[in-house]
Amino acid sequence: MSRILPYPLLSAALVLTWLLLNAPPTPGSVLLALLVGLVVPAVMLALRPRPVRVRRPGTIARLTATVLYDMLRSNIDVAKIILGLRRGERRTGFISIPLDMRAPFGLSVLSIILTATPGTLWVQYDSHTGRLLMHVLDYTDGEEWVRRVKDRYERPLMEIFP
């Protein structure tokens, strides 16, 4: 968090985005990418966003793999439900989950994970009680969902965003 690089993650993301858009990289585009990575975060400084601290790259990689696998599986599950290929009766319902996580960035990532996964929908989070209201398309067992969200997503996110 030096004066030149107030938001190192943002700078790195901007440089990478610029290079991806202008692939294959030439000396000129690399120079422009570095310039964008330096100037834009300096402008962002005026907005005083809260700095993001992430830890444990290994946990990030494992969580990413878990989320990608769950997304694939739930895509197929939801497609089956829509096409009427699923046997047996299906119930939908709301589930209330008590969350231990309070870090705002961790909560936003959790909301993206739950909403982007078909079959689960983040409806409401109460910051006073720390409870999350979620809608699930296939309500097999409420406790099973609570454990799934807490073990698979919340615990790694709490390690990543302290």
Partner: peptide, 11 residues
């Protein structure tokens, strides 16, 4: 219904 369009947005 909100769950359905996520199929197009993800996989």
């Amino acid at each position: 219904r909100v769950h359905a369009p996520t199929l197009g947005a993800t996989l």
